[in-house]
Amino acid sequence: MSLSRAERFECPYCMTINDIEVDEVNDFNQQQIVDCQICCSPIEVTVYDSEFGIKIVAKRDDE
């Protein structure tokens, strides 16, 4: 059984949909810096467990 699942978020720079693997045990309320799969800009990603499922907040690195 895998503890991670594929999720999607929108790049705040180029608005392209990106994929990310979320570890449901260790990734909640953690920040990570990932590069956009298209424009290669650094994105600050935070993963939350909400009442509606997994919520991903993606912000520009300079915000």
Rank of each mutant, 00 (worst) to 15 (best):
E63M: 05
Q30L: 10
I33Q: 14
I20C: 04
I33W: 08
R5E: 14
D62L: 00
C36A: 09
F28G: 06
P12W: 03
N18M: 00
R60F: 03
K59D: 10
Q31E: 14
V57C: 01
C14Q: 09
T46G: 06
Q30Y: 12
V34G: 00
K59E: 12
D19T: 10
K55T: 13
I20H: 02
T46E: 13
D61L: 05
N26I: 09
K55W: 06
Q32W: 06
E7V: 01
D27L: 06
I33Y: 05
S50D: 13
I17N: 10
D19I: 08
Q31T: 13
N18K: 00
R5H: 15
Y13T: 03
D35V: 06
N26L: 14
S41I: 00
Q31F: 06
D61C: 04
C11E: 02
N29H: 13
I43A: 05
N18L: 01
N18R: 01
M15N: 12
V47N: 03
P12Q: 03
D35S: 13
P12A: 02
K59Q: 10
T46C: 11
S41W: 04
Q37F: 01
S4I: 11
K59P: 00
Q31L: 11
Q31G: 12
N18W: 01
D35Q: 14
F9L: 08
K59A: 07
D35H: 13
D62T: 08
I38Y: 11
I17L: 11
V25L: 11
P12I: 05
R60K: 11
Q30S: 11
S4W: 15
I38M: 08
Q37S: 12
M15H: 13
A58E: 04
G53T: 04
V47A: 10
E7G: 08
G53R: 05
D27K: 03
N18P: 01
G53F: 02
I17W: 11
S2L: 07
S50C: 03
E21P: 00
V25S: 13
C11S: 03
I43H: 03
F28I: 10
V34R: 12
D19Y: 07
T46W: 07
C36F: 08
E7I: 02
G53H: 04
S41N: 11
K55R: 11
E10V: 15
S4T: 15
V22P: 00
V47S: 07
I56V: 07
C36G: 09
E10T: 15
T16A: 12
I56T: 06
D62R: 07
S41E: 15
V47Q: 02
R8P: 04
N18E: 01
F9V: 00
L3Q: 15
C36I: 08
V22N: 04
D62W: 04
I38A: 07
F52D: 15
E10F: 09
Y13Q: 01
N26S: 14
D35N: 13
T16C: 06
E63H: 00
Y48C: 08
V22C: 10
S41C: 06
F52I: 09
Y13C: 01
